[in-house]
Amino acid sequence: MASALFYILIFPGFLFVSVFGLAAEYIDRKLCAKLQNRVGPPWFQPLADLVKLVAKETVMPVDADLTIFRLMPVVALTAAITALLYIPMWGPQALFSFQGDVIVVLYLLTIPTLTFFLGGWYSRSVFSMIGAARSITQLFAYEIPLFLSILAPALLANTWSLSEMTVFYGQHPRYGLFNFAGFWIALTALLGKLEKVPFDIPEAETEIVAGSFTEYSGRLLAFFRMTINIEMVVGASLLAAVFLPYGLHLGPLVGFVLYLLKVLLVVALLSLSRTVFARLRIDQMIDFCWKYVAPVAFAQLLADLMLKGLLG
């Protein structure tokens, strides 16, 4: 009981993942600033933003469905934090694992997008409804390449459990290199999932104010911001566990430090693309995902299947 509470509240649960999420946001913003030749925010900036939002008034729109409006940020945060429990962090074994947890993690990471949709839709503001429709449209474009690119390595490893995948790739490190294309596909899909440039179409602030979050303020907005930060960390951890499963057998401490470095690498790549690219239109985004990203993901899947056949 005490250990379960420790897992949920301290490590790797709420406290650790919140601090890690805030740190990831700081690194993202600072790196973006450095790439734009700016000084960038101080280290406590994400914390100050969070405290300020929590202490601010939370405005409830008159037309909104208040139950869903209030519930969605909490659901989003819960789903994002839960997903981390199944991802190996300090060793080949995650805290919890079972056959099929890779699917569970993928679906838990889909829930925040659905809450953005529902929260935006039931805010009953024109901007948030457009943003909500866009985020769900975008979901259909990036979700399938993401699933294909994560499940192809699982096929090669012949398991549906992230922990067993990590063990397999630890024993056969060269097979991990084989999923190189999948890493970039998953990174692209993660950009869409986190609604970051060039796929920030659902919250395009120059067109539709702030998309789904237009009517959110104060505490509820703080929840959604934390969700995006934690989703970034969890998505990066998923990519690290599936595509960079190296060094996890070196013991908990080295493994954990390596895990942090891998997550930072993925976050750095995300902020690099945020700086380099400009926003696409929604139709361009869907064209890009279906014409180029999905076929490459299929090719990766086929290649993994063939390799598996060759190896018997």
Binding site: R29, N37, R38, G40, P41, P42, A210, E215
Partner: peptide, 18 residues
Amino acid sequence: PRFDLERFGVLLKGTPRH
């Protein structure tokens, strides 16, 4: 970027709610 108000935590927001 020349004046970089993000140093002080200033962000430009699109919606009055934020």
